[in-house]
C-alpha cells in the first residue's frame, strides 16, 4: 500500500514562491502525471516528494507514514532522472544493483533482481558495459531498471524521456507504460509534453504558476477543463475562445450566433470550443480564412472570427484558401463556458 498524500505543501526560494499550498492525494498503484510548462513548479513538487528538496511548509505522507522529515533513502521511493544519472564509474550491472547493494542484500538476490529488471528493460546484453559505451536510449533503460530493481512503493520520474529523440521517445513511452503497469508501484511522472501525459497517465495534475489547476483523468482534462488555463494549454492547437453576451433564458450571443449556455452567470462569459469539434455548414460562426495548413489527414485552418483568432481542423478534401469566408458550426454538446473573472468553467 503506497498512497501518497501531499498536504498544504508550499515552497519559497528567497522571495520567489515556487509552490502555493498544494494538496493532492495519489492512490495506491496510480500513475499520476504532473504536467505544466517549465517553471510551473512540477519538478520542485516531485523533488519535495523525493526528499531532494524540503518544503517550506506542509506535509508529505507515503503509505500512511509522514516522510517529510526523512532523507530520500528512508522514503521507500526510487527515482529516474532527466539526465539519467547513470554512474559512469560502475558497470550497468553495478548501476542496477547499486541500491540493492546499499541495502546489503545477498549477492544471489542482487543478481536475481538485476537480471530480472535488465531483462524487463531489454538490456541484459549490456550488463558488463560502462555508461560511456551506451547510447542515450540505453542509458535511459539502465536508469529505469535501476529504479525498478529497488522494488519501490513509489517510483518518481522527472522528464525521463525528454532527452531522447522523437522516435525513441515514442518507443520508450509504450514500454514504460507496460513495465510500470506490471510492477504494481505508484508512479509520479513529471513532463511538459501533453501527449506523453495523455498516453501514460491514470490521472493528470495540470500545474500553473505553482498551483495545481486541475487533477483528473486525461479524458476529463481534455473534455472538461476546469480552468481557462487548462483549456488553453491542453490540445494541439488548444481550445478557441470567443466573448459571449447574455440574452434572456440561458441563451448567449457569440459573433452574431445564438447558443444555449449556463443559466446562472453574470453579464459576460467566454465561449470555448476545440478546433476538431467544428464543421463547416450553411449557418455558423462567420469566419474569414487567414491561413490554411495541410496536415495530411486534416487541414488546420486559421481564421478571424469577430476580431479573434479562431482555429479549426477540417476535412482535407475541403477546398478553402486564404481570404475565403466560411460559416463554422460548433458541435453544440462540446461547447464549454468560462467565467472571465474567475477563469473557472461554468455549466
Amino acid at each position: 500500500m503506497a498512497e501518497i498524500q501531499i498536504k498544504n505543501v508550499a515552497k519559497r526560494f528567497g522571495s520567489y514562491q515556487a509552490l502555493h499550498d498544494i494538496n493532492l492525494t495519489i492512490a495506491d498503484q496510480e500513475f499520476m502525471v504532473l504536467l505544466g510548462a517549465s517553471g510551473c513548479g512540477k519538478s520542485t513538487l516531485l523533488r519535495i516528494i523525493a526528499g531532494l528538496e524540503t518544503a517550506t511548509t506542509g506535509e508529505v505522507w507515503i503509505g500512511g507514514r509522514r516522510v517529510d522529515h526523512l532523507s530520500p533513502k528512508d522514503r521507500g521511493i526510487a527515482m529516474v532522472f532527466q539526465n539519467y544519472a547513470v554512474f559512469p564509474h560502475l558497470t550497468v550491472f553495478e548501476n542496477i544493483g547499486f541500491g540493492l547493494r546499499m541495502q546489503k542484500l545477498p549477492d544471489a538476490e542482487v543478481r536475481r533482481r538485476v537480471e530480472r529488471t535488465a531483462g524487463l528493460m531489454h538490456i541484459d546484453q549490456l550488463l558488463k558495459r560502462y555508461s560511456g559505451e551506451l547510447s542515450g536510449g540505453q542509458r535511459q533503460r539502465v536508469a529505469v531498471a535501476r529504479a525498478l530493481a529497488m522494488e519501490p512503493d513509489v517510483i518518481l520520474m522527472d522528464e525521463p524521456l525528454s532527452n531522447l529523440d522523437a522516435l525513441l521517445r515514442l518507443e520508450m513511452r509504450a514500454e514504460l507504460k507496460g513495465v510500470l503497469a506490471e510492477s504494481n508501484t505508484t508512479a509520479i511522472y513529471v513532463t511538459h509534453d501533453q501527449v506523453e501525459a495523455m498516453s501514460l497517465a491514470d490521472r493528470i495534475s495540470v500545474m500553473h504558476e505553482g498551483r495545481i489547476v486541475q487533477a483528473a483523468t486525461p479524458v476529463e482534462v481534455y473534455r472538461n477543463p476546469a480552468e481557462r488555463f487548462v483549456a488553453g494549454f491542453i490540445g494541439n492547437p488548444p481550445m478557441n475562445f470567443l466573448p459571449a453576451n447574455r440574452l434572456e433564458g440561458g441563451r448567449w450571443q457569440v459573433a452574431g450566433q445564438t447558443y444555449n449556455g449556463p443559466a446562472t452567470a453574470n453579464g459576460a462569459v467566454e465561449f470555448a470550443i476545440r478546433p476538431e469539434d467544428i464543421t463547416p455548414s450553411d449557418s455558423g460562426l462567420p469566419a474569414k480564412v487567414r491561413l490554411v495548413e495541410p496536415l495530411g489527414a486534416h487541414l488546420l485552418v486559421t481564421c478571424d472570427v469577430d476580431g479573434s483568432m479562431f482555429r479549426a481542423i477540417l476535412e482535407s478534401d475541403l477546398n478553402v484558401k486564404a481570404g475565403d469566408m466560411l460559416a463554422l458550426a460548433p458541435q453544440t454538446d462540446r461547447i464549454r463556458w468560462f467565467d472571465p473573472q474567475t477563469s473557472l468553467a461554468v455549466a
Partner: peptide, 16 residues
C-alpha cells in the same frame, strides 16, 4: 560531477 549523480545515490539508499 553532475549533482544528479549524488541525488540518484540518495534515492538509492545512500546518506550524504
Amino acid at each position: 560531477i553532475p549533482i544528479e549523480l549524488e541525488e540518484a545515490a540518495w534515492t538509492l539508499g545512500c546518506t550524504r
